[in-house]
Design a protein around this nucleic acid. Structure first.
Length: 279
DNA sequence: AGACTGCCCTGATGGC
DNA sequence: TGCCATCAGGGCAGTC
């Protein structure tokens, strides 16, 4: 379940292994991987060949290869997507969806994705900000992030604060794990109505999200299983630092009350029923 | 218009 | 052992 910290770990790995290299071939092995590229998988592949990766950027959970300083290969990992640096001799993996080779004959870049929620698309002229994600808000680590503006927008929402945190058009990068962790840290119930919260309190929730994601990034991200890994296939260590997410029945680290889980938006919310009261 | 639901997908897991 | 239901959930289309 890659969220901002996990995507940033991958972005850094790509920056290290792929920047400066020229693409020799692009193979899309599963049409679903290019489902949002309207011109089709063959077009996506054709556009890539011969371009040089001049940078790797990220906004929220999206990242993109900057090609020839002009265009973009936009990537979203979905739930189980992985960008892997592998040997050109490696066999086609069970869930391999795309593979890129380079003119230097060195390592390949592979996109594996078990659950196929991830996808790739090519955006001409999208180097600075690909047009398909123009509606995605800056994330809390973006120099363009305006926290006061984000707080003001969230405060207009007559919905639960957790739902607002997960709305990528308000603030991006936060998914179910870090939403639960941030709400726990800020002692806020996820179903508190955003519009009824004070601006300082909403701001404190965003601060908590930024802090927990920074801590996760420092640990290489959160891995529960082999579905989230860095470009070398290694897991992150933040799972052992989680305080609420996935810890039903475990004592709240603050007050000892068992963490509970409730259904929310066809998924789960984990929180301390004592520290995080609905207001 | 804003809030919310359903759908896409596969593999691990648990109950019977 | 095997079969079925459930769960994981990001983002967007569609509904109310």
């Amino acid at each position: 379940m890659p969220e901002l910290p996990e995507v940033e770990v991958v972005r850094r790995g790509l920056d290290h292994h792929v920047r400066g290299r020229t693409i020799a071939s692009a193979i899309i092995r599963h049409p679903r991987a290019a489902r949002r590229h309207m011109a089709g998988p063959e077009d996506l592949a054709a556009q890539m060949v011969g371009t040089t990766v001049t940078g790797i950027a990220r906004r929220g959970k999206y990242m993109w290869l900057i090609l020839d300083e002009t265009d973009a290969l936009l990537m979203h990992l979905g739930m189980s997507g992985q960008m892997l640096i592998t040997s050109p001799d490696a066999e086609i993996a069970a869930h391999e969806r795309a593979r890129f080779t380079f003119t230097d004959g060195g390592s390949d870049l592979r996109f594996d994705d078990q659950r196929t929620f991830g996808h790739l698309m090519y955006d001409e002229g999208g180097a600075v900000l690909p047009s398909p994600i123009a509606h995605i808000a800056p994330d809390p680590f973006d120099p363009q992030f305006d926290q006061a503006a984000a707080v003001a927008r969230i405060k207009t929402k007559r919905t639960g604060i957790k739902r607002a945190l997960l709305d990528q058009t308000l603030v991006s990068g936060i998914g179910n794990i870090y939403a639960d962790e941030a709400l726990w840290a800020a002692k806020v119930h996820g179903e508190s109505t955003a519009s009824s919260m004070s601006k300082p309190r909403i701001s404190a929730v965003i601060d908590a999200a930024r802090e927990v994601m920074a801590a996760a990034l420092a640990q290489g991200g959160t891995s529960f299983d082999s579905l989230y890994v860095d470009v070398a296939g290694s897991s992150g260590y933040f799972a052992r630092s989680l305080t609420a997410y996935g810890l039903v029945g475990h004592p709240c680290p603050r007050c000892g009350t068992p963490i509970v889980r409730e259904q929310f938006m066809n998924r789960s919310s984990h929180f301390c029923p004592v520290c995080q009261r609905k207001r």
